[in-house]
Design a protein around this nucleic acid. Structure first.
Lengths: 228, 228
DNA sequence: CGCAATCTAGGACGATCGTCCTATATCAGG
DNA sequence: CCTGATATAGGACGATCGTCCTAGATTGCG
């Protein structure tokens, strides 16, 4: 977890210390969400947490460790959410699938998610740890989806189920920038969610393996150029 | 366009000056794509463009103007691409729709797009200009899609066509983080593209207006919390 | 109470940032 | 060829960054 500078042992983690760490991580998340990554500085985090830079450096000796814990803490919340939905066996697979879709799209419209995840995606392009944590959480999301897809389509092989889960998961994430918190099309979230449920359910129930393998090649792009 | 400090008039735009601006914007894009937004500094841009900071500030008096032109220049390229595809009347609407899907997913897998767009999305959360430019380019993408959707489904109203275009466009963008350049699932891009073509085409051809309006409420999320 | 562990504030440091200024160098038109 | 417009280099400036150090306050426990 946290890396103290003056550490003798870290296992103690006193009450005061634990609360301070939570306050720091919450402050860091809020700075990132409300002001963006460039303004996620040690001083801004400390100020929002109500402490000084010197004190912050007692809990986090460097910014990298702070980012480390921040990413882990935020993503940890989703692990618990996915487990809850996946383990809900009181409803049919179809209902469970719909609930997953509605949960994910509903979540991505929150201020925290709309602010945090695009920053995470950008970070993952150049930060190996962020990329790894991101891959981890999405793998879990896909596993949850693939499980339900398997119940809906027992005839499909694992590879096909995983590809469907990948397509559906990726598709949902894309809506963050459009129906997310205060984004252009936020007012259309209800309709978009309905289309998503209909579309993904139709896809899962109707697709055949041969449509996945396909015959046509991937469209080639010339790659974006600047100012023609 | 560019805002010189010593400007008497900007209309001239000599050959040397134009080439310098292109070199600067290309350098800026490359820095952003390869090193990320935090390292997009005036000095890094200048170095990559083969000039000095002092010289860079002759062409761009401040960083804001440089970012302005960079975003505009990159997005301008897509305007031209969309026009080409939309205006291609030699193929059927269904083929045109498929071409659009394959073009967009193919493009998002390029190094430039995978690097640039997540940075743009994150920026748009806290930069009004980036948000506006982003809204502009995606509106055009949706217009192109909605046009073809209208040819595929003349019975649908404009509102429904726009919502379908929104859903499809947003869904495709989401794949950037998964099948994009050097991303986890890049090797699955062919299969994912096939699923996308199948799924979007099935959606457009089969959905009824009542499935969009829907009856069920949007899934509520408790909002992400930190460290339970 | 007393003392060691824990926590906190404040300031310093070198590095890097955006911006700005000035002195030359290069170019194009008369 | 000369002269004004354009382009370029080099360095300076104050601000802000991550990091570090030290002295003192607070806490929990024997």
């Amino acid at each position: 977890m946290r890396k103290l500078r003056h550490q003798k042992r870290d296992n103690s983690a006193s009450n005061r210390g634990q609360m301070a760490v939570v306050a720091i991580l919450t402050a860091a998340r809020d700075v990132l969400v409300e002001e963006g990554y460039p303004r996620l500085t040690m001083r801004n985090v400390a100020t929002r947490a109500g402490i000084t830079v010197g004190n912050l450096s007692y809990y986090y000796a460097n910014k990298r460790d702070l980012m480390h814990d921040l990413v882990e803490a935020v993503l940890q919340g989703y692990f618990e959410d996915f487990e809850k939905i996946t383990d809900n066996l009181e409803i049919s697979p179809e209902e469970r699938f719909e609930e997953m879709v509605r949960f994910i799209i509903g979540d991505l419209a929150t201020k925290e998610t709309t602010g945090f995840f695009p920053a995470l995606w950008a970070l993952a392009n150049h930060d190996a740890f962020a990329a790894q944590e991101m891959a981890h959480i999405y793998q879990m999301e896909r596993d949850s989806l693939a499980k339900v897809i398997g119940q809906l389509r027992p005839d499909l092989g694992k590879k096909e189920r995983d590809l469907l889960a990948l397509f559906i998961s990726a598709s949902m994430e894309g809506h963050t920038m459009f129906v997310g918190y205060r984004r252009d099309k936020a007012s259309a979230i209800a309709e978009v969610t309905n289309i998503a449920v209909y579309s993904f359910l139709t896809l899962v129930k109707s697709i055949e393996a041969r449509s996945i393998r396909g015959l046509k090649p991937v469209g080639k792009s010339a790659g974006k150029r600047l100012a023609s």
